[in-house]
């Protein structure tokens, strides 16, 4: 096995780790990290492929990687700004579907939970204050339904 092939194998394994992290982790920052691992693994594969030739080092994959690094940092930066804004708006560090699945995504639909709410009279049980995030989400939804999609 050549050095290039060895590193290509490592790149493959890193790809797997990156995708695994993206799927299994819920924290947004963790998911961005996983994507960055994935990116660097692809770059490593390119660099390894450039090294395969016995007589020369291929400059084209190098140029591709250089371009890719800048693109990766741009996308990461934007994703992080987005995550910060999302956190500021909702107080969450996860995507909403990881928070609670149905109601957040299909508001107003007659699903099991809201049926149960309706039967029990709705609203939180007396004596238990609503959570801050919940309140914020509700007001958010109200605003949306008032103004519609912009």
């Amino acid at each position: 096995m050549s050095q290039a092939a060895f590193y290509a194998l490592v790149a493959g394994a890193l790809t797997g780790i990156g995708i695994y992290g993206l799927i299994t982790q819920r924290h947004l920052l963790r998911r961005v990290l996983a994507v960055n691992i994935l990116g660097s693994s692809v770059f490593l594969l390119l660099v390894a492929l450039a090294r395969r030739h016995p007589d020369y080092v291929d400059p084209v994959p190098h140029a591709m990687v250089l371009t890719g690094i800048v693109i990766a940092v741009s996308a990461t930066a934007f994703a992080l700004v987005l995550a910060r804004r999302y956190h500021a708006a909702t107080g969450l560090t996860h995507l909403p579907e990881d928070e609670e699945s149905e109601e957040a995504l299909a508001p107003g639909l007659l699903n099991r939970r809201s049926l149960a709410d309706r039967r029990s009279g709705g609203g939180p049980p007396p004596g238990q204050p609503e959570r801050r995030q919940g309140a914020r989400r509700r007001s958010d939804e109200d605003r949306r339904s008032d103004e519609g999609a912009q």
């Binding site: 790809t15 994507v35 390119l46 995550a83 999302y86 995507l95 605003r143």
Partner: peptide
């Protein structure tokens, strides 16, 4: 910039990054 739009954009970014890196892997 409300909850739905931001979470959709985040999902979009993460999934699109996964997609474009997979694309780049294929190109490699």
């Amino acid at each position: 910039a409300d909850r739905a739009a931001l979470s959709a954009a985040l999902r979009y970014m993460l999934l699109a990054l996964l997609g474009s890196l997979a694309y780049l892997l294929g190109v490699a």
